[in-house]
Nucleic acid binder design. Structure first.
Lengths: 109, 109
DNA sequence: TGCATACATAAGTGATTGCTTATATAATAA
DNA sequence: TTATTATATAAGCAATCACTTATGTATGCA
């Protein structure tokens, strides 16, 4: 891995919002609409973060009907490093379960 | 470690120039003037990169006369992660030895 | 067919980045 | 003392950032 590649990978991960996204994805695959609820952010903001993470190779998308299901790319060269970083982070307050409890869970998977 | 802390640490390391600096420091402690030669950059540019790395806790400074000797901070909470990242990077082309060969090595340590 | 849903993209904006040049500071050398 | 060396800091600037609002696109449903 060269310096430019590592810079691009790390830069994409070095953002509080995107680290939260990756933390959620380390548990289960999710779609954009769930993240807008979990992170309380606009849909375009989430969408743009996803694009950055995808360009860096951290996540994969799977189109299913009108949903796009996002998941961690376990084949990323730095996947193990990412995993150990994510393991150091606390569990987010909002969970998919809390969305269900609030009746805000969408049926995308 | 919380999300903001990790973001700040990773952001400081997520730069090609600063990763090169860290790679050099993983071998030996060095001063600014050596980096200006090794990286072919201006002194203020290097100085500002050092400040960022120091603020993130990645490096330590030791003032010795008019020199400032910089070294990796092995007590950083993410030191092991950093080490494994640096180990994946190729050795830089320019080395302290090549500086000596060119007669550009300074006597700072 | 028409409308709602899920998402992507584009343009605009204020904040941050990484450099530059210029200058300040502090230690040593002459 | 004066000059030189090593470094830090400040101001300025173009590029990039993360958001916003507005709009486009594709799917599924009535």
């Amino acid at each position: 891995m060269d310096y430019k590649q590592m810079e691009q990978s790390l830069k994409a991960a070095s953002d509080e919002t995107r680290m939260l996204i990756l933390k959620y994805l380390s548990k289960e695959a999710l779609c954009i609409c769930e993240f807008t609820e979990l992170l309380d952010m606009s849909q375009p903001a989430i969408s743009q973060h996803m694009r950055k993470l995808k360009q860096a190779g951290w996540i994969c998308e799977e189109k299913r009907g009108r949903w796009t299901i996002w998941s961690l790319n376990e084949k990323h060269e730095l996947f193990e490093v990412l995993s150990s970083l994510l393991a150091m982070l606390p569990e987010p307050e909002r969970t998919v379960e809390s969305l269900i409890a609030e009746g805000k869970k969408v049926n995308c998977n």
